[in-house]
Structure formats: C-alpha cells, structure tokens
C-alpha cells in the first residue's frame, strides 16, 4: 500500500509543483516557474524520502535518514551537473539560456537521482545492477527504476518537437522536455507501482510478512 501511496503522492506533488503552485505559469517563464517547482519538489522529496523508507529497519533512525537525505541532496547536485552537460552535448545552447538548461537539469535530477539515491544510497553494485544491467531486484528498486528510466527517456523525447515551426509556446527550450519528462515520470510511476505489485521474490515476501505482522 505504501508504494501506491508514495507513487500517488509524488505524482500529485509533481503535478502540483509544476503546474499549480508556481506563480508564473511554465509556458510564460520556465525559469521562474521551475525555481518554485524544484523548491517544492525538493521539500516533497525530503518528506517522501523520510516517509517512504521508515518501514525498513536500517533507515529507522533519524541520523540514518538524515544521512540518506543529505547523500541524496549531494547526488542530486552532482546529477544536475551531469544532466546539464549531457543536455549541452545533445544540443542545448552553451551559454545563452544557461539558466533554462540548469533548471531543466535540476528538475530532471530531482525526479530521478534523488529518489534513486534514497533507495540505492552509496552502493555502487546496486547502482550498476539496477541502471547498467537493468536488473532491479526488489520492490523499492523497481519503484525507482521505472520512473527514472521513463523520465530520462521522456526528457530525451521532448526535444523532438523543438525544431518544428508550429510557433507554440511549449516548444521553447526546455518546456517541452520538462513536460515530457513529467509525463515520462508519471508513466514511470504507474509502471513502477504495477511492477512492484507484481513483484514476487524472497525479499518482498519477507517484507510483506513483516508488514503484516
């Protein structure tokens, strides 16, 4: 149940943060909008991160939670730099629109790196297994694997509409990519939730037993 709750709440939080809370609409000024969005998302992520993993034993202490969250924050910043670099490699402008690119990177990083770090923490083998070999083995891993992959795929796909001459406001960089990352993330949440519900192995059985007890 908690996965559904987490997915639902992060979906709602994400939608609210992107479309409802910011004072400036995304289409009008993406940078200002994303500033609010990322701030809200960061807080939401903190809350979700704290709520989500309290069922797990090793995360129960406050100091462990704080450590995980600060690790996730650091990883998010690093991830922002990496995503920013890749956005530029894929063709984002180098200097002009720097803030747009940066806010996009921060947004995607918050959607992907933060939750992933909350689950996988500083365990390189787990990272490799999930994201390089594409073998998430637990419910928690599946619940972050799908949103992450889908978000990145969505962010990639969103760039395709940019060159078209339709003169729509959402074609401006990085709006289409932000929206498609959001859509990808939402879809990934759904997929992740389904996958973690269908998930059956020793781990989850144990976890299920523990929950029922």
């Amino acid at each position: 149940m908690s996965f559904l709750a987490v997915s639902l709440s992060s979906l709602l939080a994400n939608a609210a943060a992107l479309f409802y809370i910011p004072s400036k609409p995304l289409l009008e000024d993406p940078v200002v909008c994303l500033q609010t969005t990322t701030a809200v998302l960061f807080i939401a992520n903190l809350v979700v991160g704290l709520v989500r993993y309290e069922a797990r034993q090793e995360n129960s202490s406050l100091s462990a939670k704080a450590a995980t969250v600060s690790l996730a924050t650091g990883a998010t910043i690093a991830g922002t730099v990496v995503i920013h670099t890749f956005a530029i490699l894929f063709g984002a402008p180098l200097i002009e629109k720097f803030r747009n690119t940066f806010m996009f990177a921060l947004y995607v990083s918050l959607l992907t790196v933060f939750p992933a770090t909350c689950v996988l923490r500083a365990d390189p083998d787990a990272w490799l297994r999930v994201f390089a070999e594409h073998r998430p083995t637990s419910r928690a891993e599946k619940s972050i694997y799908f949103p992450t992959i889908f978000t990145i795929f969505g962010a990639w796909l969103g760039a395709i509409v940019i060159p078209l001459d339709w003169d729509r406001p959402w074609q401006a960089w990085p709006i289409s990519c932000v929206i498609s990352a959001f859509l990808g993330h939402s879809l990934g949440l759904v997929a992740g939730t389904i996958a973690s519900y269908l998930h059956v192995d020793e781990d989850s059985k144990k976890a299920g037993k523990m929950r029922s007890e």
Partner: peptide
C-alpha cells in the same frame, strides 16, 4: 518536415548524441 530539414544540423547532432549514448549504455550493461 520542412522544420527538420531547416534545422538538420541540430537534428543530426541529436541523432549522433543519441546513438553514441545508446552504444555507451549497451557497453555499460
């Protein structure tokens, strides 16, 4: 699409980046 032809320089760069990253991901796996 005339737009894609107009900005083909960027389209090609995007394709290159995508293919290169695809290869990297394959290798990473």
């Amino acid at each position: 699409s005339n737009s894609y032809i107009l900005f083909e320089d960027r389209v090609v760069r995007f394709v290159i980046a995508s293919v290169a990253i695809y290869l990297a991901i394959l290798a990473a796996a």
